[in-house]
Design a protein around this nucleic acid. Sequence first.
RNA 1: GCCCCCAUAGUCUAGCGGCCCAGGACGUCACCCUUUCAAGGUGAAGAUCGCGGGUUCGAAUCCCGCUGGGGGUACCA
Length: 539
Amino acid sequence: MRVRFSPSPTGQLHIGGAKTAMYNVLFAHGQAPREGKGGAFVLRIEDTDRKRLVEGAAEGLMTSLRWLGLNWDEGPDVGGPYGPYVQSERTPLYRDHAEKLIASGHAYRCFCTPERLQRVREEQRAKGLPPGYDRHCRNLSQAEIDAMLAAGEPYTVRFKMPLEGETRFYDLLRGEIVYQNDKIEDLVLLKTDGYPTYHLANVVDDHFMKITHIFRAAEWIPTAPLHIQMYRAFGWDAPMFAHVPLILAPTGGKLSKRHGATSVEDFRASGYLPDALLNYLALLGWSKDDKTEIFSREDLLRDFTIERVSPSPSTFDRQKLDWLNQQYINHILTVDELAETVAPYLAYAGLLPVAGVPERQRETYTLIARRNDAERAQATPDGERTWYEVVPAGTELADDLPRLVHDACALLKDRIRLLTEAPDLLSYFLTEHVPGYDPALLVPKKADPEMALKALEAVVAVLPELDLNDEEAVEARLRALAGELELKAGQLFMPIRVAVCGRTQSPGLFETLRVIGQPRVSQRIDLAVDALKRSLATA
RNA sequence: GCCCCCAUAGUCUAGCGGCCCAGGACGUCACCCUUUCAAGGUGAAGAUCGCGGGUUCGAAUCCCGCUGGGGGUACCA
């Protein structure tokens, strides 16, 4: 069983494309071997539209696929027995086959100009007729054709669609689909620039690359009958088809740029894990049973069958993706893995030297930097703070960063949903001094500054005798201290938390103190005491 | 306009004629845990299975129509 994913290098990999690619991989590497057949996944670049070509897009597509772990057995970079795998390198093949179709009476040269086609469409619209090519050149006499050719008139090659009858084909997800032949146009196969259209290149390549199953986006359903007719005209067997449903935007319609992140690269830069994205995409239109939600790559390879993919389109739900991402961060990644994964985001936010980013995370760092540098340069004055603007440039970092990143990840893994949240959440662990904060936060609700001051001064007094590594002892001592001061535990804990973290939310107080360590804790509390004294003096 | 596809709670889905006056998940709400925020646990609300006809002893499940949503209608893929 051989399948293929064939993106056109006109932009980044859309998550709809990623889903299609994933189904291809799961079929070739999962379902096929399970059913005792060999499986190969082919990557083919469809760069036949020279006008829409984007420099570097093919590389970007491949980077995104690899990031998702969707690896191909044959493709432009790895080669294979049926190459080349880039269509622009195969143009003679397409031209030959267009000629073959003309010779066998299944296609014809069309000398109509774009202007004439445009005019025909307008006339049809004016008369309320369905727009489409009027087959003007289908019945030119040989003399007319020869004259045009002799005059050097440019031409396209169009497929001679049967004028009557019907074409049926079987879709693995939907069953049989029937089209009336007279509803299908004589579409262009070869353009005047000598490049093939999708229809020609696809059918020819899928045949010569021995593709057995075509899993492609549902938007191709309407042209499937054309493709079937082409296989027949060539005398080839058509592969099986499965048209995978589109991903819709919450507002309806195809998911597009206006709906925020839509490309795999967008999600990568926004702090999603490849496994979580893949898991989410798998669930969008497929399920194993009535309860399983978390699927590792191995699970998917073991459980996926194309037959269980739903034929109905589904709406993209960012909240569920976020939940899955959080599940992976909190329950599936180890602390070491999290610390490594989060490194590029920390580095870009200035909380880790770039040199401290592990080799394996370099690519992510580069991607983040490339995508954000431009935006960063033209900093919006009104702007909301972005995830990487959590500490001022030049902030002094702690000297024992690797340990701190690791320990802070251990404490914070249950509250990171996106990796981009890490810089903010980890900031006060990684800097030498607590980032600036409003001293008013030091005062708990329903309390006054005098009380907060009294509490912190009492802490300053007992701090030297505490071993912060002994969380239980610290807790016991501080609880006792609260009693002595006639405060509720929380009324004592909150000022300490704010003094040390610069915010009212943090992991458990005692583990936080342990990780930040005696010297910095004590220095931060001293500063908080000063701040309180100052504000009391002014008031 | 014409052609095609799809149709279970706001969203993703289980269900493939009786097990379903419909199960799971996200989200929402409440409670528990608790030094904050999370995480975790427990529970609740939320679907006349889009509507109307059939078929059948019996339909979310099969058939037809309608409605709604989506896609296609390019010398783009």
